[in-house]
C-alpha cells in the first residue's frame, strides 16, 4: 500500500533510475558473456592458429591466432610422419559399428522395458539403473581381464563388442517409448502384426527424435572413447584416434615439442564432433538435461 501512495511523487526519478540500472545491467551482462565467450572459445582459436605455424613461431607467439608465416608443414607431417590415417580409419570403423549396435540393441531393450510385459522386467530395469552408476574408470582392469580370458585382447572385436550396448542408452529409449501413445501399436497388433514387426515398422519410425539423440551420443561417446582402447588393445595397428593422439603426446615423436603437429592432430580429431555439435545442437542440450534426470 505504501508503495502505491508515494508513487506519483517519486515516479519520474524512479523511472529514470530504473532505466539507468537496466542499461548498466545489460552492459554488465554482455561484458560477462563476451569475457566468458573468449575464455571458452579462445583456446580453440589458439589451437587452429598454432597448428598452422612453424615451431619457432608457435613457441615465440603462443597467444597470437595469426601464423607468421602460415605453413601446412605440421599437417603434412601428420599424414606423412605418423600413423594418423590408420588411426582415423580405426576410429571410423569402431564408431560406426558401436553406433549401429547401440542404437539397435538399446532401442530393442528400451522398448521391451517400456512396453512388453514379461517376468523379471522390474528387476531388469533396476539392474539397468544400477549399471548406469558403475563408474567406467574402475572397469579398466576388469575389462582387460575378461578380454584377455576370452581371447579378444588386441583385436577389433575387443575394441567394439564391449561397447555395443550401454545402460544409459537403454534408459533414454525406455523413457521415450513410454511417452508415445500406445494406441497405434495396439492397432497394429490387432491387425496381426508380430511384436518385432510392430516395433520395427510402427514404433521405431515414431521414435525418430530419441533415435537421433542416441545416434549422436553414441557417435560422440565412441569417437572420443579413450580408456577402453587403452585396456583392450596394445598393437599400434589397432590404435584409435584418441589413443594415437595420446601416444604422440607421450613421446613417440621423439625430439622436440612439435606443438603445431600435435595441435593439428588434436584439431582433426575434434572436427567431426564439432560439426555434429553445430548441426544437432538441440539434441546435445536435451541430453544434458536428460542427464540431470537420470543422474
Amino acid at each position: 500500500m505504501a508503495v502505491l501512495t508515494d508513487r506519483p511523487a517519486a515516479a519520474p526519478a524512479r523511472r529514470h533510475q530504473r532505466a539507468a540500472r537496466t542499461l548498466a545491467t545489460r552492459f554488465l551482462g554482455y561484458a560477462t558473456l563476451v569475457f566468458f565467450g573468449l575464455v571458452f572459445l579462445y583456446p580453440f582459436v589458439i589451437q587452429i592458429g598454432n597448428a598452422l605455424k612453424t615451431e619457432p613461431d608457435a613457441a615465440a607467439n603462443p597467444l597470437s591466432p595469426f601464423p607468421d608465416p602460415l605453413t601446412l608443414a605440421g599437417f603434412e607431417r601428420i599424414f606423412a610422419g605418423t600413423n594418423f590415417p590408420l588411426w582415423l580409419g580405426n576410429s571410423l570403423l569402431v564408431t560406426v559399428l558401436v553406433t549401429i549396435g547401440r542404437v539397435f540393441f538399446d532401442s530393442l531393450a528400451g522398448y521391451a522395458l517400456a512396453r512388453l510385459r514379461f517376468r523379471g522386467r522390474g528387476g531388469l530395469f533396476a539392474a539397468v539403473i544400477a549399471v548406469m552408476a558403475v563408474p567406467g574408470v574402475v572397469l579398466l582392469i576388469p575389462k582387460f581381464l575378461v578380454l584377455n580370458q576370452l581371447g579378444l585382447y588386441n583385436s577389433y572385436a575387443g575394441l567394439v563388442v564391449p561397447l555395443l550396448a550401454d545402460a544409459a542408452g537403454v534408459f533414454i529409449m525406455k523413457q521415450f517409448f513410454e511417452s508415445i501413445p500406445v494406441s497405434v501399436e495396439e492397432a497394429a497388433r490387432i491387425d496381426g502384426a508380430s511384436i518385432f514387426r510392430t516395433f520395427w515398422s510402427v514404433v521405431l519410425p515414431m521414435a525418430k527424435p530419441a533415435l537421433i539423440t542416441l545416434t549422436i551420443l553414441s557417435f560422440q561417446g565412441s569417437w572420443n572413447e579413450f580408456p577402453h582402447s587403452l585396456v583392450s588393445v596394445q598393437d599400434p595397428d589397432l590404435f584409435t584416434l584418441p589413443r594415437g593422439l595420446a601416444d604422440l603426446v607421450s613421446g613417440s615423436l621423439g625430439k622436440g615439442t612439435q606443438y603445431p603437429l600435435k595441435l593439428g592432430a588434436a584439431l582433426l580429431a575434434t572436427i567431426p564432433v564439432a560439426i555434429i555439435f553445430v548441426v544437432f545442437q538441440r539434441y546435445f542440450v536435451r541430453d544434458a538435461n536428460d542427464g540431470a534426470d537420470k543422474g
Binding site: F40, L241, T270, A288
Partner: peptide, 25 residues
C-alpha cells in the same frame, strides 16, 4: 553463448588435454 560455453564438454578429453598442454607449456 550457451553453445560456446557448452562446446568444450563434448570434445575429446584427449584432444583437449593436448591443447592445454600447449597453453600451459
Amino acid at each position: 553463448f550457451r553453445s560456446a560455453f557448452y562446446f568444450p564438454s563434448v570434445t575429446s578429453s584427449v584432444a583437449i588435454s593436448v591443447v592445454f598442454l600447449f597453453l600451459f607449456a
